[in-house]
Amino acid sequence: MKSIHDLLGEHPFFEGLPPESLDLIAGCGVNVHFREDQHIIDENAPADHFWVVRTGRVALEINTPRKGLQTIQTIGPGGLLGVSWLIPPHRWTFGASAVAPTSAIEIDAACLRGKCEADHDLGYELMKRFAVVVRDRLQATRLQLTDLYGSYAS
């Protein structure tokens, strides 16, 4: 059976991290499984974990006045669920539910924040990697906001 260290090492987000860094992160992680439709995150709840998605699919959701619950993004294998744990006030901005059976590594946020404070090299490396995730999501959101397909005729 693969260790948390091994599983993290196979995930694209952690690609190229030295083994000692993976060890530190793995020390904050456990394997978790979510069944289909299982609720994972409540909007505005404390962001005390994040998840390294290995298999399955998770939907980020927001409740809207007219349309009700809307999925604004899905996160699949190779993705990360949750960035709010990194930035004060450490509360979730959106809800999340599994839309398919999902396996992930759950990382304890306080544990990893503490290790990043103690080891700034690790903290800076992770911050750079999370910045890419945040940039990609910001770009995707901007594209979605432009309603690209609505104006596209044949």
Partner: peptide
Amino acid sequence: VTVDSAAPDWRGDVGVVTTLLPR
């Protein structure tokens, strides 16, 4: 297949099409 937004009964992907490339 991915869409820009969807109700929760959509079991597929939500996001821009380029996010499908790693799949």
